[in-house]
């Protein structure tokens, strides 16, 4: 067991974890932040995407101990208090979600994408950049629309 200290959604947290504990397990089971999901075992579906030190990463492919000392943002920490993040708003306004399971990872991936590319995100880039996020409900049409709308809004 190892004690880790990190910042999650702006709060200092610490926990004692088995070294084999994945970051996503620590976030879900110990911090009870259950918005981050697990949808596959092979680092492909992206339901677990969080931001680690400002970059989108797959929390199912990282040990919690690797995140010791890091600054982690999960879907629960994206909004500014009661004010939703523009990407969250855009997903709702454009019907970019159905069952909601892939949504937190999609939103965290989209936020990172917009941070890197700015407002001029074209459809082709969005579709390419979504390679690491799988949705089974929406057929992606409205997810792409949501991200383009959010990019415009944030730019």
């Amino acid at each position: 067991m190892t004690v880790i200290n990190l910042t999650v959604n702006g709060s200092e947290v610490s926990g004692e974890v088995d070294d084999r504990t994945l970051l996503v397990q620590f976030i879900r089971d110990q911090l009870r932040l259950t918005g981050t999901h697990v949808g596959c075992d092979t680092s492909q579906c992206g339901a677990c995407v969080v931001h680690v030190d400002g970059k989108a990463m797959k929390s199912c492919t990282m040990l919690a101990v690797q995140a010791d000392g890091s600054d982690v943002t999960t879907i629960e920490g994206l909004a500014d208090g009661a004010e939703l993040h523009p990407v969250q708003k855009a997903f709702r306004e454009n019907h970019g979600l159905q069952c909601g399971f892939c949504t937190p990872g999609m939103i965290m991936a989209a936020t990172d994408m917009i941070n890197r590319h700015g407002k001029d995100l074209d459809e082709e880039t969005i579709r390419e950049e979504l390679e690491g996020n799988i949705c089974r409900c929406t057929g992606y049409h409205n997810i792409v629309k949501s991200i383009a709308a959010a990019a415009k809004e944030m730019g």
């Binding site: 918005g35 999960t74 879907i75 939703l84 709702r92 979600l97 909601g100 949504t103």
Partner: peptide, 17 residues
């Protein structure tokens, strides 16, 4: 617009796991 979205986009959905 969907009523249920508010919880899903905030990570507040409650799934079995």
């Amino acid at each position: 617009l969907r009523k249920e979205d508010k919880r899903f986009i905030s990570g507040k959905g409650k799934y079995t796991d």
